[in-house]
């Protein structure tokens, strides 16, 4: 069953502050991802891998083409959806994990991780229990759980972010270098999380700089150089 159907999308940036200079990024991008499938985006830096992920998430606008996501009840085109539809999609169907945590002042790590569950109506006790299990799996020391992550190390913040990204059940999960700069043990933990998601039927699209991780989780790799814009 196809969860994500990308049809002929294109993206360029117009830099008005540089005299209207246009930077083409990608064009003619088309691929499908089925439930339970993990597709890796490959290619060198600057090829547009992150831009494709951000277009799928609705974070970047799409100049042309369609990005169809099946949320279980309807198929929504992210490229033309209203902000409200994209927010609803993110709240139920579409997840995104980057390596950077956007820290919210004064909110404890455990609450940051549990928040997507509470937003889905799961009561605080269960949400916290699942958040605790997730943080334990990612080897975040328990003494940090009730502290706001602003003072955490980069690696600790990254694991809080991964825990938050993986905790909820989404039909489609986008991964933007989730294992960058993680040590071996934590990298293996993330590989385990990705495999669990796949087994549960989640469709995944990811960027993995680490070939070992990619080989461990991806069903196939899509070389983004094929979509280089003219």
């Amino acid at each position: 069953m196809t969860v994500l159907d990308v049809q002929d999308i294109a993206k360029s940036f117009t830099l008005h502050l540089r005299g209207g200079l246009t930077l083409p990024v990608v064009a003619g991008v088309s691929f499908e991802v089925a439930a339970g499938e993990c597709v890796a985006l490959g290619g060198p830096s600057g090829a547009g891998k992150s831009s494709i992920l951000k277009m799928i998430y609705g974070n970047y606008r799409t100049d042309a083409g369609r990005i169809l996501i099946d949320d279980g009840a309807a198929v929504i085109d992210v490229a033309s959806a209203s902000p409200r539809e994209i927010l609803a999609l993110r709240a139920t169907t579409l997840g995104y994990v980057s390596q950077f945590l956007r820290v919210i002042p004064r909110v404890a790590a455990l609450d940051i991780v549990a928040e997507p569950l509470r937003a889905r109506g799961i009561d605080t006790t269960e949400a916290n229990a699942r958040a605790s299990a997730m943080l334990k799996r990612l080897n975040l020391p328990e003494r940090l759980w009730h502290l706001p992550p602003a003072t955490f190390s980069g690696g600790e913040q990254q694991r809080v972010n991964i825990a938050r990204g993986f905790i909820a059940d989404t039909r489609l999960l986008l991964l933007d270098e989730p294992t960058a700069s993680l040590d071996g043990a934590n990298r293996d933990a993330v590989i385990g999380l990705i495999r669990d998601k796949r087994a549960a039927g989640t469709a995944l699209v990811g960027i993995f700089h680490d070939d070992e991780v990619r080989d461990a989780v991806a069903d196939r790799t899509l070389d983004v150089r094929a979509f280089a814009a003219a």
Partner: peptide
């Protein structure tokens, strides 16, 4: 106008790009 992260991360209008930068 649009989704907050979209407007701030991928601003289209010249003025918005100036604000964000």
């Amino acid at each position: 106008e649009g989704l907050t992260d979209q407007v701030l991360d991928d601003p289209q209008a010249a003025y918005t790009q100036l604000l964000v930068s």
